[in-house]
Design a protein around this nucleic acid. Structure first.
Length: 214
DNA sequence: CACCAGGCAAGTA
DNA sequence: TACTTGCATGGT
């Protein structure tokens, strides 16, 4: 029934080509970006990360030493800056207290352990945790975001009440457990969302997945 | 001008 | 348990 999901992947890949995600030069940058992009346009997140880089602050020690108010000021363009500065501090505290600031050790933990640790940090929910697992730790974990939910709903592949884990299991059940595939698939879904599946456009006239509804 | 964007947690009933 | 609300900037 649901190897539609594999067909969809191939259709998206044919249409858009590889997306080269995640935009981030290091695992730390990916983790910071994952928090900053919560309910926020990536363009705004880029500015915030550029600010941190320009100030030489994109390291675990520098961010740890930085007062939370100063961190908030630097990530201002990403929106919710007070909230997100606190969330980043929570994550830094976890790394410092349980892993002595050794990010590499943290990222080598078993996937289930890593996920539980991330979720225990206040401000990291399922999507942010899974983004970090996939894009920073390179684990075969499928990320479900607002775009994923919307395009599946719009094409009648899920119902309103399906939650995060049910949608995630659809993909995991239908696809080979391959981190590179999950990475590309999620990136392609976001690309589809930006180009064809916005909230405003009721139905995608020139959508590359037009064949689905027949 | 209104509405939207790679969410999450806390408050209410 | 099931809604609702706060958080905030920059683009369309």
């Amino acid at each position: 029934m649901n190897n539609r999901l594999l067909e969809i992947y191939h259709a998206l890949y044919r249409h858009f080509g590889p997306q080269h995600w995640w935009p981030g030069d290091s695992p730390l940058e990916v983790m910071v970006g994952a928090v900053l992009t919560q309910n926020t346009n990536w363009q705004n997140v880029s500015r915030a990360i550029a600010n941190l880089k320009a100030a030489g602050l994109l390291s675990l020690t520098a961010l740890t030493a930085l007062p939370v108010e100063v961190l908030a000021a630097r990530i201002r363009p990403a929106g919710y800056y007070n909230l997100k500065a606190g969330r980043l501090k929570n994550l830094l505290a976890l790394l410092n207290e349980k892993y002595q600031g050794q990010l590499a050790d943290f990222l080598e933990e078993e996937t289930a352990v890593l996920r539980a640790l991330l979720l225990s940090s206040k401000g990291i929910g399922p999507e942010t945790a899974d983004s970090i697992l996939l894009y920073a730790a390179r684990r075969p974990v499928f990320v479900v975001d607002a775009y994923t939910h919307r395009f599946l709903l719009r094409h009648g592949l899920i119902s309103e009440e399906d939650d995060y884990h049910e949608i995630q299991d659809l993909f995991v059940g239908a696809l080979p457990e391959d981190a590179a595939l999950f990475n590309e698939y999620h990136a392609l879904i976001v690309r589809l969302g930006k180009d064809f599946c916005k909230k405003r456009q009721p139905l995608c006239a020139s959508c590359p997945l037009e064949w689905l509804s027949r």
